[in-house]
Nucleic acid binder design. Sequence first.
DNA 1: CTAAGTCACTAACCAAGTTAGTTAGTTTGT
DNA 2: ACAAACTAACTAACTTGGTTAGTGACTTAG
Lengths: 162, 162
Amino acid sequence: MAADQVAGRWRVDSPGVGNPVMERLQEVGALTRVIEKRLSGALGVNATGLAAMEHLTSEGPLTAKDLADRLRVSTAASTHIVDRLEKAGHVVRRPHATDRRKVLVEPVQESMTRIFEHLTPLLSGVESLVEGLSPGDRDAVENFLAGVVRIYTDTADALPRD
Amino acid sequence: MAADQVAGRWRVDSPGVGNPVMERLQEVGALTRVIEKRLSGALGVNATGLAAMEHLTSEGPLTAKDLADRLRVSTAASTHIVDRLEKAGHVVRRPHATDRRKVLVEPVQESMTRIFEHLTPLLSGVESLVEGLSPGDRDAVENFLAGVVRIYTDTADALPRD
DNA sequence: CTAAGTCACTAACCAAGTTAGTTAGTTTGT
DNA sequence: ACAAACTAACTAACTTGGTTAGTGACTTAG
């Protein structure tokens, strides 16, 4: 059993609970959400719109269908998402050069620049943190994170896919 | 500038992009979402409902107002959330012993147990990963994660609060 | 060259949040 | 002691952002 009501107090004694490393991992997750919420607010889009912009920024112009697949939403939703991004001035629609069914969604340079400006402190902060590590410590951190990814992947796989 | 279209290809040269550690951190974030999605699906609730159950499980019975504050939603939303959790059999409403305005939301033992069963592999996996570290490596990992939390916190603070 | 498949889109709908306002109960100031 | 102010939970009406179903334009395979 995981938690028990004892004398009016709640006691949690599951393995790992209270582990400082686990707590940090959860903090990083919570902070990631806060950053995404604020950044999307600053751009005047919602969380999905920001996720779309991140795909467009790192992969370049994509079709509405490509975006739908990456965001795991319907193509109908993708149309709406691109509508909103276009209205906000973050992307432009361009016809595909050869396949006239397709519409290429292209991120606007100005918007990409704004996103990176906000995220640069984070990216360069982590990079310099890693660079400040001794080779041995860096190995330890990299192996640890690889282990965490493996454990999280196994946990996800053990859960029903849908 | 962060990204540039060069000869039909997209090139990203922001600091930290492509850093293997940064990639792991992002993978952990993505996997966290997958796990939450699947776990909430297994319980027949949405992401907010699962978050509410996590608060109730770790902190014990809370009022609807307490839940609203922790989930950062309106008290009206909190009422709906508790309605859905109650209908799904995951919580019960009980009147507060002394303050008759209040309604205590109490998690059902069976539901708490199910949540912990799903999360135990993750929690104990990370715990044993940490236990398998030499003292020096553990320090390196803990300091690194503390640094990451600091960087993420600073990034969040630099973004407009609303 | 027709049949099947793909893409973007629209319409109608649904889930889950919001704000505004109500009612019941509690706390505070005089 | 009691009226005024506050607080908790709830309801109603609305908004946002997704879904499914279905259409028309275009492309690909047999």
